[in-house]
Design a protein around this nucleic acid. Structure first.
Length: 112
DNA sequence: AAGTTGACGGATG
DNA sequence: TCATCCGCCAACT
């Protein structure tokens, strides 16, 4: 692997695309999948700059606490929660993920 | 060209 | 358990 160069964003988007419906992954996990372990921040940055019209399921990416990283009052934040709930993800009153409809062990984090 | 930022994570207090 | 600090480094200004 010669080129490490990158194009990190496409790589990150591709990884996020692998998250199955109803599942959630942490930024760290996405970074790891993208081959850049430890660079969770870059994942956040990449998603923050999502290209217009992308089909990336960005809403399936949450922080290590199993919580939505965006401000709850922000448009994207509430949208993310809504999208996740529509996929079978359950939140408690605290805004933390209690459970998901994900059947893949890989994405099952011990949230909460 | 150089400094700042950040959709994080982990360690520490 | 919660709050704060530090480190990682590409992208942005």
């Amino acid at each position: 692997m010669a080129k490490n160069n990158s194009q990190l964003y496409p790589r990150i988007y591709k990884s996020v695309n692998r998250i199955p419906h109803g599942c959630v992954a942490t930024y760290g996990q996405v970074a790891e999948m993208a081959g850049i372990p430890g660079h969770a921040r870059l994942v956040g940055y990449a998603l923050h700059n999502l290209p217009d019209g992308s089909t990336v399921p960005w809403h399936r990416v949450v922080n290590r606490n199993g919580r939505i990283s965006l401000p709850p009052d922000s448009f994207s934040g509430s949208l993310q929660k809504a999208l996740l709930e529509s996929e079978g993800v359950v939140f408690d009153s605290n805004g933390a993920i209690i459970s998901t409809s994900c059947r893949h062990a890989l994405y099952r984090k011990n949230f909460r």
